[in-house]
Design a binder for these strands. Structure first.
Lengths: 122, 122
DNA sequence: TTATCATATGAATTATTGTTCATATGTATT
DNA sequence: AATACATATGAACAATAATTCATATGATAA
């Protein structure tokens, strides 16, 4: 329907508005793969159930059942979310008889969360 | 269909497995509202387009058009995402004629991202 | 081995969200 | 006023993901 779409690219201006800036930034931008991984990590943090699980684990290692109890959610829901955290290597676990105890995998998590808290409360 | 669901609660065990742990953690856990806000913040970081926008802005303030050019995406897509970042108070902007320049709102963002990079690359 | 408990998981459902397309708004230029 | 350009936005569509339900697995105790 549009009158002319010969060499009309979807992207804004052909004559870039600030070609120097565009070039400089494009050069310095980290690899897409790394940026994708960063987004994936934050995506895991971007759910309130998982945030609450992580914050609970700041206090103590816990079994699935106890986490479900603290959060007032079903065992199934917690187990599904723990799988997500496990796949992201954010939690580790140990088995003791029937019970499985989860804990946080490393300390960056606490640092990242502390910064997030500061950002929100400032 | 289930034989007995009289006082069978959805949540795992009535006799909590570790009542002391449950109580201690429940007491220390921050307010749900705060944890919800944290999740919301991370949700904003949890998209690779927004991550790329933010990382581009680490280098320099940029107009919408240039960001679209650097990321190889449409002006509309970028504009929608900038709105999300704006609503989360993660970016600020200034208008100069027809052009709107965006930049990062504060330094916590860089700190949080640096920690995320470290976590991924360790 | 059978029964029971803690946890894990597949399928289905519902809700959320990123991008596109079309178009509106706002600013400058003629 | 009319045109052109940069940006913003509403609606629609497609994809992703969180929870529930039912059931499977794995471990212990009787």
């Amino acid at each position: 329907m549009s009158a002319n779409n010969e060499n009309t690219v979807e992207i804004c201006c052909e004559d870039k508005v600030h070609p120097e800036v565009v070039k400089a930034v494009a050069d310095k931008l980290p690899d897409d793969e790394l940026l994708y991984d960063v987004a994936e990590l934050f995506k895991v943090f971007g759910d309130s159930t998982r945030v609450r699980i992580i914050c609970a684990l700041f206090e103590s290692e816990m079994c699935v059942c106890d986490i479900a109890d603290v959060l007032g959610m079903t065992q199934s829901a917690i187990s599904h979310q723990l799988r997500v955290l496990k796949q992201a290597r954010l939690v580790k676990y140990r088995r003791d008889g029937k019970t499985v105890y989860y804990s946080l995998a490393d300390d960056h998590i606490q640092t990242i969360f502390n910064q997030a808290f500061e950002h929100i409360m400032e």
